[in-house]
Design a protein around this nucleic acid. Structure first.
Length: 282
DNA sequence: ATGAAGGCCTGAGGGC
DNA sequence: TGCCCTCAGGCCTTCA
């Protein structure tokens, strides 16, 4: 699934097609994704203009001209694709390439006044959509945005106090810091030389400072590369990210550590794979 | 009140 | 070819 860099890449792809654009038709092709769709979702969105498309952690937020907001989460396998009216006019099949997604999993379709169709496809249906009234708080309890000024070594250090779980698990907790997933946690821990097994409470201020720098750097580099493409992820144009070629530990079990040459190890923490170099990370 | 495990879904890939 | 097993970028719920 998309972590923060992939969601940001999707946002940038969708933004020019949605911002300032009126929605003329919404279709829901089933009753639910992970959760039921919001009450009266079609009525609340049809004819509305999207005034902004922003991102909070791994959530996309589309605000309409009524102040209502549609929140979209991609789960593990959610994708958006854009089908412009102009490209539909091409000779059928002429420039066609294989569909990236199975049409059976096209669960939501948005059509805009420009004739563009924006389709949400999600085979595993771990994604979901919610709507919030203008005054509703959308993300109570969600931790700081890692690329914002609200996140710092001091903030992270404070938030890790008293935590008995390993630092790896703590970083996946969205209430500690929001937007990280398994890949970028593994990479940031490697980059900062911190063992994923170290108890969160034993990450001191110096390590927290290094960790914050590593988290910011790896997220920024991944966004610049258009995200990472593994099995399920593609950007809104159907293109692939490139950051997976830059992984230092993730998915590299047994391969030599880029720093010391010893084999990268895989362990399981809280039921999820962790990749690390036990020699470089302490 | 924490933290770990289970479960939700489908699809891909490996071993036989 | 096909079957069966394991695993997957998330996260909510349940259990210890």
């Amino acid at each position: 699934m998309p972590e923060l860099p992939e969601v940001e890449t999707v946002r940038r792809g969708l933004q020019p097609h949605l911002e300032g654009v009126r929605l003329t038709r919404i279709a829901l092709n089933r009753a639910d994704l992970r959760f039921p769709f919001p009450d009266r979702m079609i009525e609340r969105l049809t004819g509305r203009t999207i005034v902004s498309l922003t991102r909070r952690a791994k959530f996309l937020v589309a605000e309409t001209d009524t102040g209502e907001r549609l929140v979209m989460h991609l789960g593990m396998s959610g994708r958006f694709s854009i089908h412009e009216a102009a490209s539909d006019a091409k000779t059928p099949g002429e420039f066609a390439h294989a569909r990236l997604t199975d049409p059976r999993h096209d669960h939501v379709e948005f059509e805009t006044e420009a004739g563009t169709r924006i389709v949400f496809n999600d085979p595993r249906r771990f994604g979901y959509m919610q709507m919030f009234a203008p005054d509703d708080e959308m993300f109570p309890g969600l931790g700081p945005e890692p690329l914002s000024n609200a996140f710092s070594g001091a903030v992270l250090h404070e938030r890790l106090q008293g935590r008995k779980s390993p630092i790896k698990t703590a970083l996946l907790d969205q209430s500690v810091v929001a937007g990280l997933g398994n890949i970028y946690v593994c990479e940031a821990l490697f980059d900062s030389g911190i063992s994923p097994k170290r108890l969160a409470a034993n990450v001191g201020r110096a390590r927290a400072d290094r960790l914050v720098v590593a988290i910011r750097d790896v997220l920024a580099a991944a966004i610049a590369a258009g995200g990472s493409t593994l099995k399920d992820y593609a950007n809104a144009e159907g293109g692939l990210g490139y950051f997976q070629h830059s992984f230092k530990v993730y998915g590299r079990e047994g391969a030599p550590c880029v720093s010391c040459g010893k084999p990268v190890a895989r362990i399981v923490q809280s039921g999820r794979s962790t990749f690390l170099c036990s020699s470089c990370q302490r």
